[in-house]
Design a protein around this nucleic acid. Structure first.
Lengths: 263, 263
DNA sequence: TCTGACCCATTTATCTTACAATTAAAAGAG
DNA sequence: CTCTTTTAATTGTAAGATAAATGGGTCAGA
């Protein structure tokens, strides 16, 4: 727990140039990551005050400058708020920037609650069918061909390989790009890390999890045909199937979401 | 342009405790704000390299520590990326965290493009009716009474006063809270600052801008009655009206959005 | 002569260290 | 109870040492 982040960083630097997500190479990134996970896990609860800079810094084998930068990162994402004399306080959960891609990623390092997963699928169920509808009307040839390419990779790799999952992400990304709406595109980068998690989770499940490829194909065809109604409908089916699979592999007892179908 | 931020801060500290949004009291906040606006305005374009830390620091009358914290804030929001030797580079627009409430706020300090406003209304049109539907099913008494209180204030204050606009924001916030979906709630804090802008803009428009109060009342009644279909329908009407007004006061020639009604 | 890999210097961000200033909460005096 | 003083925490300043990555140069091989 109180081991040296600085040393860890040094080792990492000697081995591989990019460890991936966990260590972003910089010390302040590692600090931010550690603190964020502690907050999201609930080790520090909203309203709690973090130990002062000097103490924290000593127990983490760092110095103040990187620590303060880490705090700034967390503050930028609405996780903490620091004021002189009071100290650095964890913000209320409602002020957290849950849609921030990094926060979303950190969230999934801690086995999120069922409520969170449901909220996420609700958000997908609201936005992705609508996005498919818009994409059917506005998509450009580039997006269409990229979607097709991803579709082909998905067909032969399935979701059990890394390449296959990347292709899945790429498919959704290109669909969002097709909407020509930069806010929906921005939403995608948040939801993307969530999809990555849920597909990875499903692919490790031996039993259930039907093949979602036909669903993707139908979405593609609808978008290619500029059939906005079919695009919405098939995307909704896709998300609902994904929800069902996740629901089953999580062993939820509750019924599915209460959102009506609006097609 | 190259005046002293440090002095400015000192003056401000002597006058009022909180200038509001522009100066968040701290120097790194002011630096981040200035740089962010420069980026969002397009003074620095994606791919551009900001001047070296040492040069920047001199021209801004600051020192390196606060400057670096400012850079960390911007990096946390996906606006820049800094690496040794290369310097600090402005990221591609698609990587910007547009849904971040602060970024959204900065966006509206620079008269955003028509495309951005349209994207925003599209997002509202997708999410808020669905949120109203969920809120109708799940809202608790607290949210209902808060919505009612806001509604009353809106009635007597209208959108021409600050209190009235705050009540408007509160109404939407409570509706989102009623969904019991923390991701939709998080979306609200982003959209909130946007609504604040558009209502303020409309209220300064002498001519058009119908009174949106009846629309709000209908939404409230539907949510109170737990009538999810009516809630969705009336909320969609409300957003479309707001869009129409904005469209008119902006003098757009283009037709309204192409999203179909799904009620 | 051209191509490629490898090594090295330079530039830049990053980290360390030490100290001064500001802020706001809390304690104390009138 | 109000006003002042104290005090503990973050914030800002300054400068030097470290480490990382790009770009260029060298050298070997085709």
């Amino acid at each position: 727990m109180a081991d040296s982040l600085a040393e860890n960083k040094k080792n990492q630097a000697g081995n591989v140039p990019s460890e991936g997500i966990f260590f972003q190479g910089r010390l302040h990134g590692a600090l931010a990551h550690r603190l964020a996970v502690d907050i999201l896990k609930g080790n520090y609860k909203p309203g709690d005050i973090l130990p002062h800079q000097i103490d924290s810094v000593e127990s983490l084998n760092s110095t103040r400058t990187p620590y303060r930068e880490a705090i700034r990162i967390l503050a930028a994402k609405g996780l903490v708020e620091s004021r002189p004399k009071r100290g650095t306080q964890v913000c209320e959960r409602s002020r957290w920037n849950l849609l921030d891609p990094e926060v979303m990623g950190w969230m999934f390092e801690t086995t999120p609650t069922d409520a969170f997963i449901k909220a996420l699928f609700e958000l997908r169920l609201i936005n992705e069918p609508a996005a498919a509808e818009l994409a059917a009307e506005r998509r450009r040839p580039e997006q269409l061909s990229q979607m097709y390419a991803s579709l082909m990779i998905m067909k032969e790799e399935t979701l059990h390989t890394e390449r296959g999952r990347i292709a899945d992400l790429e498919f959704h990304k290109q669909l969002l790009l097709g909407t020509q709406n930069e806010l929906l595109i921005s939403l995608n980068s948040s939801i993307g890390s969530a999809i990555a998690w849920s597909t990875k989770f499903k692919s490790s499940d031996p039993i259930g999890s039907r093949d979602s490829w036909p669903d993707h194909l139908r979405v593609y065809e609808a978008v290619a045909d500029r059939d906005s109604r079919a695009a919405r409908f098939s995307m909704e089916a896709l998300v609902r199937t994904a929800l069902e699979d996740t629901r089953r592999s999580q062993g939820w007892k509750t019924a599915s979401l209460s959102l009506e179908s609006h097609t």
